[in-house]
Design a protein around this nucleic acid. Structure first.
Lengths: 179, 179
DNA sequence: GTAACTATACCGTCTGGACGGTACAGTAAG
DNA sequence: CTTACTGTACCGTCCAGACGGTATAGTTAC
């Protein structure tokens, strides 16, 4: 069999990084190829057009989201606590895929928006099992807020320490609500 | 005296609308001029370049934010409740300016990000006076979450009715926290 | 086992179109 | 006469995508 397509993953990773760090506008095919250490021709060999690149990213997001939801269900201190903790930017594969996709949703990319809605609904369902539908909503919005802020920091922000403190505060608030 | 510069505001409004509906990428100068019913030459008469257009938008945002914070302080049922209610997308001038500016922050526009951080801090301070620093954080993140979702609906979303119900839920949760 | 061939995994260059911005001549209203 | 535009023509740059070429790994045939 022929050699493995090492470039494919490199390109996807590079696209993700650029979306996070410099936004959709600057994540051009040239920039992606350069960051991935691949020629533009090579990039287009794997992804015939930009839409294909986006599709692959969304595919990856879906996979990671499914894994995440499994872990959430199995979390020892409840899915709500897990959810809040995991909404903090921690540079995990899931975080990266999520924030990268956020950039696309912002640019009014319909397919991306639909995927997001789906994932959010799944999260909400799992949360509701843990804390009931009302608190689930509150927790869900807090998590979104955390992501909203992570967006503005464009990757490993300086405000990481203070955000960690915020997560502890939110977990405290959650405890108060549980009673 | 010469006639008033009616085109200036029309251009700003158009830019705002396009940012909200189709994102930063598609909000080109040509598109803005067309939406505003103004020639491109006319647009560039008022705003010599795109950066000037952005500055004017941020100026408008700051003005509206100051007004909003005043109203928040004066809210009869407390600033936290006011904040949650006002975080729902209601197509107010403030909402429009805020979400439009969000689009720019996403594209890593530094000045916009700085302005956002400032406004958020002011909100947080006012909230803390009402409900204390911990709950203020929770409320602040819930509000951000609400905006985060408004972004994805790109203006008057279909999910408006269900979002209104969510606001009621969040207000209920807030009441539980207040005790 | 080696020559002929095929498929995969790339590289590098080019082009057509869009976009930001300039320039400038003209017009209409106060 | 000035302000507030319209309209068009144009330039430089950037970008998505097309295209032609190359290297190498497996496959078949003898």
């Amino acid at each position: 069999m022929p050699r493995k397509p090492v470039a494919r993953d490199a390109v996807l990773d590079a696209y993700e990084s650029l979306l996070i760090e410099v936004g959709e506008r600057a994540a051009t095919l040239d920039a992606v190829a350069k960051r991935a250490g691949v020629s533009k021709g090579g990039l287009l060999y794997h992804f015939p057009n930009k839409e294909a690149l986006i599709s692959a990213l969304l595919e990856r997001l879906d996979e990671l989201a499914q894994e995440d939801i499994e872990q959430m269900k199995a979390a020892p201190d409840g899915s709500a606590a897990y959810f809040i903790r995991s909404s903090l930017w921690a540079d995990t594969p899931m975080d990266r895929a999520f924030v990268a996709a956020t950039r696309l949703a912002e640019v009014a990319h319909e397919e991306t928006r639909r995927r997001f809605a789906g994932i959010q609904q799944q999260w909400l369902d799992v949360l509701a099992e843990d804390v009931g539908p009302e608190i689930a909503k509150a927790v869900s919005y807090m998590g979104d807020g955390l992501y909203f802020n992570a967006m503005f920091e464009g990757g490993q922000g300086a405000g990481n320490a203070s955000r960690e403190a915020d997560v502890d505060i939110l977990l405290g608030v959650l405890d108060r609500l549980r009673k």
